[in-house]
């Protein structure tokens, strides 16, 4: 069970949150300029590191705001 620090509400149980995957994946500035390969890369491919991961969470059952979290995918330790 993760104890997740919401930047606005403080530490809360994991069940209050929903997961959003890799952080910092911006929508393409000019989608129509992308090739099919580039579009597939943006749409379907995400980093999947073993170790430090910057990821998105949303406090679904709290303030409902999104935030970034740095978590280790091996130890589950959350950087504070």
């Amino acid at each position: 069970m993760l104890l997740i620090p919401c930047p606005w509400c403080g530490e809360r149980d994991e069940v209050e949150f929903s997961y959003g995957g890799q952080a910092g994946v911006a929508y393409p500035l000019d989608p129509e300029a992308l090739s099919d390969e580039e579009w597939a890369e943006w749409l379907f491919v995400r980093d999947n590191p073993k170790g430090r991961f910057v990821e998105r969470w949303v406090h679904t059952q709290g303030c409902r705001r999104w935030f970034d979290l740095v978590r280790d995918t091996v130890t589950h330790e959350i950087a504070r």
């Binding site: 069970m1 994991e14 997961y19 995918t73 130890t75 589950h76």
Partner: peptide
């Protein structure tokens, strides 16, 4: 479990 992990363990809920 919803989150990415290589830990071979998950959350109790």
């Amino acid at each position: 479990d919803s989150y990415n992990s290589y830990a071979q363990r998950g959350s109790f809920h």
